[in-house]
Amino acid sequence: MWKIARMGAVGAALCGGASAARAVDGLVPFNGTILAACVLTVGTPGVLVANGTYTELSSSAGGGLGGIITVLTTGASFKVSALAPSAFTLAPATGNDNVSFAAAYSGSGATTMPNTPGATQTSLGLGVTNVVVNLSATKASGNFVTGNYTATVTVRCE
């Protein structure tokens, strides 16, 4: 009886010894740095349509489509603007005669922006802002003739 008890005690001691080997946790640190950045991502380009008298091409007219761009900011103090072109990059021979351009933009999301003249800078909040950019081209004299027209608006974040 005494022998059996002693063997049990030895067994318990062995088992206890195994369970006494505690797991050791090692801490692996991870570090990361996000720099203040502004990311512009073009969603869809815009579509220009002519008015009834063919003196204006506009993306905000019926059937037109504003360009969509996503602005992501990870830091403060960034501003956005949309710069109108000075001429069409693609147009028929008389397409750039007597034409003036005007860009405008509006936004929603992290920053809510009403319709704003393109050259005006708007401060951006942190996060994602969806911006709609519109462009109009107006002829002071004459009319837009048949052909393909392409203009480029520069969306700037700084």
Binding site: P45, S59, T89, Y149, T154, E158
Partner: peptide, 24 residues
């Protein structure tokens, strides 16, 4: 100075968008 990264416009619509991100 401003140092600007400018993407070349893409797409085939009438209004193209060029992105310009400028550091000061």
């Amino acid at each position: 100075v401003r140092i600007c990264a400018e993407s070349v416009p893409f797409g085939h619509a009438a209004t193209l968008l060029r992105t310009q991100v400028c550091g000061r």
